[in-house]
């Protein structure tokens, strides 16, 4: 880890100004991912602008019944918040499925969205990696990729986004509020992450110096019956090998509203639009759920060691939708 300067920002404008003054500066939130990457040499900022004490930690109910989660709210505070738990249970469950109690206490909402992939080649500076050093190649494609992407990946990069929280958010149409040097901006989370394409190093649509100030969850009644499920290689404290956030509304035996997002399958939290299209207006039942899963996974491009994710995700989609369809109060 190289030496770096440190400044603690006291307001949003000041934070943006401090960052703009140093071309290799980096915002520091909770640091649970950034400090880790700095120790590994993956990140080498010359200056840290500490935004963790900005007055952005609040979680407030919006007039439409939605929520605004401040970007420096800790993961723990999000998961413990009564309105998140009761009105957006998939979001609370997703947060609780991530990391550990210690890390959730420190990790921020904004930092969670911006965390980097845990691809072992990305985190090892002695290896090539197109995301870390564009143009050096991707050893994962022929190497270790058992937990890599099956959807939306490219020849350049097959890394997955590790967040659970973002999967819950993207299922429920969350938007990211951002302050940039030229003013505020609001971005649907689904559009926040760029497609991988040939530029895996450019992960989001954020401009230089942009600071996430919050996350807006719109007031969707269906969200109160949303759920999140995560599958991993041990019972706790591990990244997903597959996860799903979903909500389902059925009227007279027909699906009238559905939201599905998948985790650990792509470079971003994956909104399963193809599955949703199949389901909307379809008669509820196992056949429709299977058709929906197949429609979403038709585009899957599994590799040698991650092909299991196709049946895994198919089963997760069908099981989750079946449970939601049978749940009381749908």
């Amino acid at each position: 880890m190289r030496e770096f300067g440190y400044d603690r920002a006291t307001d949003v404008a000041g934070a943006i100004a401090l960052l703009g003054a140093d071309p290799h500066a980096h915002y520091l939130g909770g640091g649970t991912n950034l400090v880790d990457l700095m120790k590994l040499g993956v990140e080498a900022p010359t200056r840290l602008v500490d935004v963790s004490r900005l007055p952005l930690a609040g979680i407030e109910v919006l007039p439409d019944g939605g929520l605004r989660i401040g970007s420096t709210a800790s993961n723990s505070d999000i998961a413990a918040h009564p309105d998140v738990r009761r009105r957006f249970p998939a979001v609370a469950q997703a947060v609780l499925a991530g990391a550990s109690g210690q890390l959730r206490n420190v990790a921020t909402a904004g930092g969670n969205l911006l965390q980097r992939t845990r691809c072992p080649y990305f985190t090892d500076v002695t290896k090539p990696c197109n995301k870390r050093v564009p143009g050096t190649g991707c050893p994962a494609r022929d190497g270790e990729h058992h937990n890599h992407a099956i959807l939306g990946a490219s020849v350049q990069c097959i890394a997955t986004h590790p967040s659970d929280f973002a999967v819950g958010l993207v299922a429920l149409d969350a938007r990211v509020t951002v302050q940039e040097s030229d003013g505020p901006r609001e971005i649907p989370l689904e559009e926040f992450y760029r497609p991988v394409g040939s530029t895996p190093e450019r992960e989001t649509v954020l401009g230089p110096g942009a600071l996430i100030t919050g996350i807006v969850l719109p007031g969707l009644p269906i969200a109160a019956r949303s759920r999140y499920r995560k599958v991993r290689e041990r019972a706790s404290y591990a990244f997903a090998i597959g996860s799903i956030a979903a909500a389902l509304h059925v009227t007279d035996g027909t699906v009238t509203e559905v939201r599905i997002a998948l985790g650990a399958v792509a470079s971003r939290p994956w909104r399963a639009r193809a599955a949703e299209r199949v389901l909307l207006g379809a008669p509820v039942g196992a056949d429709a759920f299977a058709d929906a899963a197949d429609a979403e996974l038709a585009a899957a491009q599994p590799l040698r060691d991650n092909a299991y994710k196709v049946p895994l995700m198919r089963n997760l989609i069908v099981t989750m939708l079946s449970e939601l369809a049978e749940a009381p109060g749908r």
Partner: peptide
Amino acid sequence: CDHGQCGACTVLVEGRRADSCLLLAVA
């Protein structure tokens, strides 16, 4: 582990548990 992967460094910061290996002292 020095990377937030084991919890051996757990302390309380403002009463809340945290992995001290990922906290910069200056912060």
